[in-house]
Amino acid sequence: MRIICPVKRVPDTAASKKVDPDDFTLDRDSVEAILNANDEWSIEEAMRIKERDGAEVIVLCMGPEQAQTTVRKALSYGLDGAIQVTDPAIHGSDAVATARVLAGALREESFDLIIMGNQSSDARTTLVPAMLAEFLDLPALTYARKLEIDGRKLTAHRETASGHVVVEAEMPAIVSVVEAINEPRYPSFKGIMAAKSKPLSTRDLGAVGVDASEVGLANSWTQIIEATPRPPKQAGEKVDDDGSGTVGAKAIADFLAAQKFI
């Protein structure tokens, strides 16, 4: 079996980010970049399949040259190889353009399964797995919190607001996973040392069959017109209770009633 895990290099979730005032893209030099946390779940799931059934697991990453550190981080979990798509024309691509590039790279590859995080921690669109499925004409099992494999048949528990639904598909297929699916391992020191010697293939847009006119900031379907920093947190209302609870309880009840919760 051959599994491909698309991953994304994202700014550190905990860091405060800066946006370029001219084109509203993220100033990537101002923050430390990390491997998208959701991709750790997809890598873990792929590694478990590899350890259970045997599989070759490849990481696929679209991003600038510096994203190679992210690719190496992904490889340190014990993956077998990597494909990185790097091209200056990609800068500023939205979800559709990203899916176009990833689909282009995947068309050149043989695979049975694509496992990816359900969203990136920076853009949070959750759209790319489904778009990728559309471009590649493959079934997509998204938001999986449990994945079972029986021969060529995939069964996923798809997380919903009220519980889960069971969905099935035949391989090849795309699966996007959520946090509940597993507990990712720590990369072993051996894995970190080995990551450097794993094969990494770097490709530009031409090599994945995508035209520069279809990607990048100017050709993205999504255009950002304005960006405003999040307003500072407003101070809350403080209620002093006399110790009996009558003042505090009434204030809470009044608040909930005003919000139409009770």
Partner: peptide, 17 residues
Amino acid sequence: EEQYQLRDAARDFFAGE
């Protein structure tokens, strides 16, 4: 670079465990 990667991995490991 690898020695720093090991350090970062150790930091993540201890932060979690």
